[in-house]
Design a protein around this nucleic acid. Structure first.
Lengths: 143, 143
DNA sequence: CATAAAAAGGATAAAAATGTCTTTTAATCT
DNA sequence: AGATTAAAAGACATTTTTATCCTTTTTATG
Protein backbone atom coordinates (compact mmCIF):
# COMPACT_ATOMS: atom_id res chain seq x y z
CA UNK A 1 0.00 0.00 0.00
CA UNK A 2 2.76 2.38 1.00
CA UNK A 3 6.25 1.71 -0.32
CA UNK A 4 9.22 1.97 1.95
CA UNK A 5 10.29 4.97 -0.05
CA UNK A 6 7.08 6.75 0.88
CA UNK A 7 7.60 5.93 4.51
CA UNK A 8 11.14 7.24 4.31
CA UNK A 9 9.90 10.40 2.67
CA UNK A 10 7.27 10.94 5.35
CA UNK A 11 9.87 10.48 8.05
CA UNK A 12 12.12 12.97 6.34
CA UNK A 13 9.40 15.56 6.03
CA UNK A 14 8.45 15.09 9.67
CA UNK A 15 12.03 15.75 10.63
CA UNK A 16 12.00 18.92 8.57
CA UNK A 17 8.74 19.96 10.18
CA UNK A 18 10.34 19.70 13.59
CA UNK A 19 13.76 21.08 12.78
CA UNK A 20 13.58 23.54 9.94
CA UNK A 21 12.08 26.76 8.69
CA UNK A 22 13.01 29.46 6.19
CA UNK A 23 15.91 30.56 8.39
CA UNK A 24 17.09 27.15 9.52
CA UNK A 25 17.61 24.82 6.64
CA UNK A 26 18.89 21.35 7.25
CA UNK A 27 21.27 19.19 5.27
CA UNK A 28 20.64 15.56 4.54
CA UNK A 29 23.96 14.83 6.19
CA UNK A 30 22.58 16.03 9.51
CA UNK A 31 19.24 14.27 9.42
CA UNK A 32 19.69 10.85 7.90
CA UNK A 33 21.03 9.36 11.11
CA UNK A 34 18.05 10.51 13.13
CA UNK A 35 15.37 9.23 10.79
CA UNK A 36 17.31 6.05 10.01
CA UNK A 37 17.31 6.33 6.25
CA UNK A 38 20.43 5.94 4.06
CA UNK A 39 21.89 9.36 3.35
CA UNK A 40 22.03 9.24 -0.46
CA UNK A 41 18.63 7.66 -0.72
CA UNK A 42 17.01 10.18 1.56
CA UNK A 43 18.62 12.91 -0.51
CA UNK A 44 17.06 11.47 -3.64
CA UNK A 45 13.62 11.35 -2.10
CA UNK A 46 13.79 14.87 -0.70
CA UNK A 47 15.02 16.20 -4.05
CA UNK A 48 12.03 14.58 -5.69
CA UNK A 49 9.67 16.16 -3.18
CA UNK A 50 11.35 19.52 -3.66
CA UNK A 51 11.13 19.24 -7.43
CA UNK A 52 7.39 18.72 -7.07
CA UNK A 53 7.03 21.63 -4.70
CA UNK A 54 6.03 19.58 -1.69
CA UNK A 55 9.01 20.75 0.33
CA UNK A 56 11.53 23.56 -0.19
CA UNK A 57 15.25 23.70 -0.69
CA UNK A 58 18.10 25.99 -1.64
CA UNK A 59 21.58 25.10 -2.81
CA UNK A 60 24.95 26.36 -1.83
CA UNK A 61 26.37 27.33 1.56
CA UNK A 62 23.74 27.76 4.24
CA UNK A 63 21.46 25.84 1.94
CA UNK A 64 19.50 22.73 2.64
CA UNK A 65 15.97 21.44 2.84
CA UNK A 66 13.21 23.10 4.81
CA UNK A 67 9.48 23.51 5.11
CA UNK A 68 7.86 26.82 4.39
CA UNK A 69 4.63 27.85 6.07
CA UNK A 70 2.82 26.68 2.98
CA UNK A 71 4.67 23.38 2.90
CA UNK A 72 3.38 22.57 6.35
CA UNK A 73 -0.17 22.65 5.09
CA UNK A 74 0.59 19.83 2.71
CA UNK A 75 -1.11 16.51 3.32
CA UNK A 76 0.57 13.17 3.72
CA UNK A 77 -1.05 12.16 0.46
CA UNK A 78 0.88 14.93 -1.30
CA UNK A 79 4.08 13.19 -0.26
CA UNK A 80 2.88 9.72 -1.17
CA UNK A 81 1.60 10.88 -4.54
CA UNK A 82 5.04 12.14 -5.52
CA UNK A 83 6.91 9.06 -4.39
CA UNK A 84 4.53 6.21 -5.15
CA UNK A 85 2.04 7.81 -7.48
CA UNK A 86 -1.64 8.06 -6.71
CA UNK A 87 -2.45 4.95 -8.68
CA UNK A 88 -0.40 2.66 -6.49
CA UNK A 89 -1.91 3.89 -3.25
CA UNK A 90 -5.45 3.80 -4.39
CA UNK A 91 -5.31 0.58 -6.36
CA UNK A 92 -7.85 -2.07 -5.51
CA UNK A 93 -6.98 -4.40 -2.67
CA UNK A 94 -7.05 -7.31 -5.08
CA UNK A 95 -5.42 -5.32 -7.83
CA UNK A 96 -8.26 -5.77 -10.27
CA UNK A 97 -8.22 -3.16 -12.96
CA UNK A 98 -11.59 -1.53 -12.95
CA UNK A 99 -12.60 -2.30 -9.44
CA UNK A 100 -14.29 0.62 -7.73
CA UNK A 101 -17.36 1.29 -5.67
CA UNK A 102 -19.62 0.69 -8.65
CA UNK A 103 -18.08 -2.61 -9.63
CA UNK A 104 -16.50 -3.81 -6.43
CA UNK A 105 -14.57 -7.05 -6.20
CA UNK A 106 -15.15 -9.48 -3.36
CA UNK A 107 -12.66 -8.05 -0.98
CA UNK A 108 -13.66 -4.54 -1.77
CA UNK A 109 -16.65 -4.55 0.52
CA UNK A 110 -14.74 -6.17 3.31
CA UNK A 111 -11.49 -4.36 3.23
CA UNK A 112 -12.34 -1.47 0.97
CA UNK A 113 -14.00 0.53 3.70
CA UNK A 114 -10.86 0.42 5.79
CA UNK A 115 -8.72 1.26 2.86
CA UNK A 116 -10.88 4.26 2.01
CA UNK A 117 -10.51 5.52 5.55
CA UNK A 118 -6.78 5.01 5.37
CA UNK A 119 -6.64 7.10 2.23
CA UNK A 120 -8.86 9.78 3.76
CA UNK A 121 -6.47 10.02 6.67
CA UNK A 122 -3.58 10.50 4.28
CA UNK A 123 -5.53 13.14 2.42
CA UNK A 124 -6.84 15.02 5.41
CA UNK A 125 -3.81 14.99 7.65
CA UNK A 126 -1.35 17.81 7.18
CA UNK A 127 2.22 17.91 8.36
CA UNK A 128 1.11 20.53 10.83
CA UNK A 129 -1.54 18.22 12.24
CA UNK A 130 1.03 15.54 12.81
CA UNK A 131 3.54 17.50 14.81
CA UNK A 132 1.23 19.64 16.87
CA UNK A 133 2.07 19.45 20.53
CA UNK A 134 5.20 17.43 19.79
CA UNK A 135 8.66 18.74 20.47
CA UNK A 136 10.73 15.72 21.33
CA UNK A 137 12.29 14.63 18.08
CA UNK A 138 13.30 11.21 19.25
CA UNK A 139 9.71 10.39 20.05
CA UNK A 140 9.02 10.38 16.35
CA UNK A 141 11.82 8.18 15.19
CA UNK A 142 12.23 5.40 17.76
CA UNK A 143 14.13 3.38 15.19
CA UNK B 1 0.75 -3.87 3.13
CA UNK B 2 -0.35 -6.76 0.89
CA UNK B 3 2.03 -7.90 -1.82
CA UNK B 4 0.75 -8.69 -5.28
CA UNK B 5 1.63 -12.27 -4.59
CA UNK B 6 -0.77 -12.32 -1.66
CA UNK B 7 -3.49 -10.81 -3.78
CA UNK B 8 -2.86 -13.43 -6.46
CA UNK B 9 -3.02 -16.16 -3.86
CA UNK B 10 -6.30 -14.87 -2.47
CA UNK B 11 -7.77 -14.75 -5.94
CA UNK B 12 -6.63 -18.30 -6.57
CA UNK B 13 -8.14 -19.57 -3.35
CA UNK B 14 -11.41 -17.79 -4.10
CA UNK B 15 -11.53 -19.52 -7.43
CA UNK B 16 -10.98 -22.86 -5.73
CA UNK B 17 -13.70 -22.05 -3.23
CA UNK B 18 -16.15 -21.51 -6.05
CA UNK B 19 -15.05 -24.29 -8.36
CA UNK B 20 -13.56 -27.16 -6.44
CA UNK B 21 -14.14 -29.75 -3.77
CA UNK B 22 -12.73 -33.17 -2.85
CA UNK B 23 -14.29 -34.67 -5.96
CA UNK B 24 -13.64 -31.85 -8.37
CA UNK B 25 -10.04 -30.78 -8.32
CA UNK B 26 -8.88 -28.06 -10.60
CA UNK B 27 -5.63 -27.64 -12.49
CA UNK B 28 -3.75 -24.40 -12.61
CA UNK B 29 -4.00 -24.59 -16.38
CA UNK B 30 -7.76 -24.22 -16.16
CA UNK B 31 -7.90 -21.38 -13.68
CA UNK B 32 -5.07 -18.98 -14.40
CA UNK B 33 -6.96 -17.33 -17.23
CA UNK B 34 -9.99 -16.61 -15.12
CA UNK B 35 -8.17 -15.09 -12.19
CA UNK B 36 -5.70 -13.26 -14.44
CA UNK B 37 -2.51 -14.51 -12.88
CA UNK B 38 0.43 -15.96 -14.86
CA UNK B 39 0.09 -19.73 -14.93
CA UNK B 40 3.49 -20.73 -13.58
CA UNK B 41 3.43 -18.08 -10.91
CA UNK B 42 -0.02 -19.03 -9.70
CA UNK B 43 1.12 -22.65 -9.58
CA UNK B 44 4.01 -21.67 -7.38
CA UNK B 45 1.82 -19.75 -4.99
CA UNK B 46 -0.76 -22.51 -4.72
CA UNK B 47 1.98 -25.05 -4.13
CA UNK B 48 3.25 -22.93 -1.30
CA UNK B 49 -0.23 -22.70 0.21
CA UNK B 50 -0.67 -26.44 -0.16
CA UNK B 51 2.67 -27.14 1.44
CA UNK B 52 1.55 -25.12 4.44
CA UNK B 53 -1.79 -26.91 4.62
CA UNK B 54 -3.88 -23.88 3.74
CA UNK B 55 -5.31 -25.55 0.64
CA UNK B 56 -5.26 -29.15 -0.62
CA UNK B 57 -3.86 -30.89 -3.67
CA UNK B 58 -3.11 -34.25 -5.21
CA UNK B 59 -0.81 -35.12 -8.11
CA UNK B 60 -1.35 -37.19 -11.18
CA UNK B 61 -4.38 -37.73 -13.37
CA UNK B 62 -7.58 -36.39 -11.86
CA UNK B 63 -5.32 -34.44 -9.58
CA UNK B 64 -5.24 -30.73 -8.98
CA UNK B 65 -5.85 -28.18 -6.29
CA UNK B 66 -8.99 -28.03 -4.19
CA UNK B 67 -10.41 -26.84 -0.92
CA UNK B 68 -11.55 -29.31 1.68
CA UNK B 69 -14.32 -28.51 4.12
CA UNK B 70 -11.65 -27.62 6.62
CA UNK B 71 -9.75 -25.46 4.16
CA UNK B 72 -12.81 -23.30 3.72
CA UNK B 73 -12.70 -22.31 7.35
CA UNK B 74 -9.30 -20.77 6.88
CA UNK B 75 -8.99 -17.04 7.22
CA UNK B 76 -7.58 -14.63 4.67
CA UNK B 77 -4.78 -14.00 7.10
CA UNK B 78 -3.78 -17.66 6.86
CA UNK B 79 -3.13 -17.10 3.18
CA UNK B 80 -1.30 -13.84 3.65
CA UNK B 81 0.86 -15.27 6.42
CA UNK B 82 2.15 -18.00 4.13
CA UNK B 83 2.89 -15.72 1.20
CA UNK B 84 4.04 -12.49 2.82
CA UNK B 85 4.76 -13.55 6.36
CA UNK B 86 3.01 -12.13 9.38
CA UNK B 87 5.76 -9.64 10.00
CA UNK B 88 5.29 -7.84 6.73
CA UNK B 89 1.55 -7.41 7.12
CA UNK B 90 1.65 -6.25 10.67
CA UNK B 91 4.72 -4.07 10.47
CA UNK B 92 4.41 -0.47 11.52
CA UNK B 93 3.12 1.97 8.94
CA UNK B 94 6.36 3.88 9.13
CA UNK B 95 8.42 0.75 9.35
CA UNK B 96 9.99 1.62 12.67
CA UNK B 97 11.38 -1.38 14.42
CA UNK B 98 9.78 -1.51 17.82
CA UNK B 99 6.70 0.50 17.09
CA UNK B 100 3.59 -0.91 18.72
CA UNK B 101 0.66 0.30 20.79
CA UNK B 102 2.93 0.89 23.79
CA UNK B 103 5.52 2.87 21.87
CA UNK B 104 3.59 4.22 18.93
CA UNK B 105 5.18 6.34 16.26
CA UNK B 106 3.52 9.50 14.98
CA UNK B 107 1.51 7.89 12.27
CA UNK B 108 0.54 5.01 14.44
CA UNK B 109 -2.31 6.83 16.13
CA UNK B 110 -3.57 8.26 12.89
CA UNK B 111 -3.35 5.33 10.61
CA UNK B 112 -2.78 2.54 13.06
CA UNK B 113 -6.45 2.22 13.97
CA UNK B 114 -7.39 1.63 10.37
CA UNK B 115 -4.58 -0.79 9.92
CA UNK B 116 -5.65 -2.74 12.99
CA UNK B 117 -9.14 -3.02 11.60
CA UNK B 118 -7.77 -4.13 8.27
CA UNK B 119 -5.81 -6.88 9.97
CA UNK B 120 -8.82 -7.90 12.04
CA UNK B 121 -10.83 -8.27 8.85
CA UNK B 122 -8.13 -10.49 7.38
CA UNK B 123 -8.09 -12.55 10.55
CA UNK B 124 -11.80 -12.85 11.02
CA UNK B 125 -12.93 -13.42 7.47
CA UNK B 126 -12.97 -16.99 6.26
CA UNK B 127 -13.07 -18.18 2.69
CA UNK B 128 -16.57 -19.37 3.38
CA UNK B 129 -17.61 -15.90 4.52
CA UNK B 130 -16.34 -14.41 1.31
CA UNK B 131 -18.19 -16.58 -1.14
CA UNK B 132 -21.49 -16.96 0.63
CA UNK B 133 -24.36 -16.07 -1.61
CA UNK B 134 -22.06 -15.75 -4.61
CA UNK B 135 -22.24 -18.10 -7.56
CA UNK B 136 -21.21 -16.01 -10.51
CA UNK B 137 -17.52 -16.58 -10.88
CA UNK B 138 -16.87 -13.66 -13.13
CA UNK B 139 -18.24 -11.31 -10.53
CA UNK B 140 -15.18 -12.06 -8.46
CA UNK B 141 -12.52 -11.53 -11.03
CA UNK B 142 -13.49 -8.50 -13.11
CA UNK B 143 -9.94 -8.26 -14.39
C1' DC C 1 35.77 36.99 -8.47
C1' DA C 2 37.26 32.75 -6.30
C1' DT C 3 35.98 29.34 -3.35
C1' DA C 4 33.49 26.21 -0.94
C1' DA C 5 29.03 24.34 0.28
C1' DA C 6 24.96 22.22 -0.85
C1' DA C 7 21.29 20.31 -3.81
C1' DA C 8 20.44 18.36 -8.60
C1' DG C 9 21.11 14.92 -11.79
C1' DG C 10 22.67 10.79 -13.96
C1' DA C 11 24.85 6.32 -14.06
C1' DT C 12 25.45 2.28 -11.77
C1' DA C 13 24.87 -1.54 -8.25
C1' DA C 14 22.45 -4.59 -5.07
C1' DA C 15 18.44 -6.71 -3.38
C1' DA C 16 13.79 -8.14 -3.52
C1' DA C 17 9.74 -9.29 -5.97
C1' DT C 18 7.84 -11.28 -9.83
C1' DG C 19 7.84 -14.54 -13.43
C1' DT C 20 9.50 -18.80 -16.35
C1' DC C 21 11.33 -23.28 -17.28
C1' DT C 22 12.92 -27.98 -16.47
C1' DT C 23 13.22 -32.01 -13.79
C1' DT C 24 11.32 -35.00 -10.19
C1' DT C 25 7.68 -37.33 -7.72
C1' DA C 26 3.23 -39.31 -7.09
C1' DA C 27 -1.27 -40.76 -8.66
C1' DT C 28 -4.24 -42.89 -12.17
C1' DC C 29 -5.46 -45.66 -15.99
C1' DT C 30 -4.75 -49.05 -19.27
C1' DA D 1 4.11 -53.06 -14.92
C1' DG D 2 4.26 -49.13 -17.97
C1' DA D 3 2.55 -44.89 -19.84
C1' DT D 4 0.58 -40.71 -18.79
C1' DT D 5 -0.85 -36.91 -16.05
C1' DA D 6 -0.47 -33.30 -12.78
C1' DA D 7 1.60 -31.17 -8.72
C1' DA D 8 6.28 -30.42 -6.25
C1' DA D 9 10.64 -28.64 -6.33
C1' DG D 10 14.16 -25.96 -7.59
C1' DA D 11 17.08 -23.49 -10.95
C1' DC D 12 17.06 -19.58 -13.75
C1' DA D 13 15.44 -14.91 -15.82
C1' DT D 14 13.36 -10.44 -15.59
C1' DT D 15 11.62 -6.34 -13.48
C1' DT D 16 11.03 -3.21 -9.79
C1' DT D 17 12.57 -1.26 -5.70
C1' DT D 18 16.06 0.22 -2.97
C1' DA D 19 20.60 2.10 -2.51
C1' DT D 20 25.23 4.19 -3.81
C1' DC D 21 28.47 7.02 -6.25
C1' DC D 22 30.16 10.62 -8.95
C1' DT D 23 29.73 14.74 -11.61
C1' DT D 24 27.40 19.13 -12.47
C1' DT D 25 24.99 23.22 -11.23
C1' DT D 26 23.69 26.74 -8.14
C1' DT D 27 24.58 30.01 -4.49
C1' DA D 28 26.38 32.33 -0.29
C1' DT D 29 30.40 34.39 1.42
C1' DG D 30 35.09 36.14 1.98
Amino acid sequence: MLSNSSKYAIKGVLYLALNSDEDHKVMVRDMHGVVHVPEAYLAKLLQELSRHGVISSTRGPKGGFFLSKEDRKRSLMDIVKVIDGEKRVKSCVLGVKDCDTDQPCVLHKLVGANKSKFIKVLENTTILDLIEGKRDVEEFFPV
